[in-house]
Design a protein around this nucleic acid. Sequence first.
DNA 1: ATTCCTGCAAAAACTTTGCACCATG
DNA 2: CATGGTGCAAAGTTTTTGCAGGAAT
Lengths: 147, 147
Amino acid sequence: MFVNSEEFKKILKEKGFKLTTQRRTVLDVLQRNEGKHLTAEEIYEIVKKDCPEIGLATVYRTIQLLHELKLIDKLNLDDGYIRYEIGKFNNDHHHHHHLICERCGNVIEVEDDLMESIEERFQNNYDFQVTDHKVKFYGICRNCKDN
Amino acid sequence: MFVNSEEFKKILKEKGFKLTTQRRTVLDVLQRNEGKHLTAEEIYEIVKKDCPEIGLATVYRTIQLLHELKLIDKLNLDDGYIRYEIGKFNNDHHHHHHLICERCGNVIEVEDDLMESIEERFQNNYDFQVTDHKVKFYGICRNCKDN
DNA sequence: ATTCCTGCAAAAACTTTGCACCATG
DNA sequence: CATGGTGCAAAGTTTTTGCAGGAAT
């Protein structure tokens, strides 16, 4: 499931990048925090435990790189931060969506293939070839609805 | 379809706000630019033609207010700007989605009710009551696919 | 050795806030 | 005339960039 050091090194080398402790550590943190949606600052704080000398700028640069390499996904919850999470569909093409509770702010992850039928419609009706999508549903989660 | 001065004044008054030239002009600009997705800075530039003394801070404050009043929608195209457009579903509950071309950046608006069947599934499978959604599809548009 | 990377600090980019004055109801 | 709004400038946030020293291949 996850990318180990050898694989990571190979991926980097293919594009002329080098494997560094900082890059390895940032990727580790994202992998250990699967399912969370971390900001750059949060990643920085966690990474510093394993790699205290790292700078915030390096975290930003590494995040951008990991995103270009499609190892992590970007997520925007409209709270002023760009958030990142480890990519779950490097191998397959299952996308996931986010259910965001408007009361408690909890984010539930959902896998659903129903979206594909919609993508087909866009293909047919708009001549638009969908390659990716970002979907956020807002509402009231199970825990909040009874309160 | 659009909100005129009298209606706007009434909406504002209900919440204890006053109708000012600046607010009226910002709303006008958004209404005249239906279908575009404007940043605060872009709105500011256009508004200055009708209301040259307006300040950028007032544009930001007005945008926030209009969003709270649900007269305009927020849109994030992940380009570093928060964008706004006139709300299209104040009366009905038809949502729209965005098809974003990865090559030319063009944004196509789509209305589609297929999303509702997905929302029903979330209700049933996750006990999550969807109240709103934001959907962005990325891909290649008609004009770009042949180049 | 060469190329790429990092940390730091400074700058950039977008947005918010404080305050004295002004406009609306 | 009381309340709320505005413009300006300053400050706040998040993210990016320049550069000299340092690490990886």
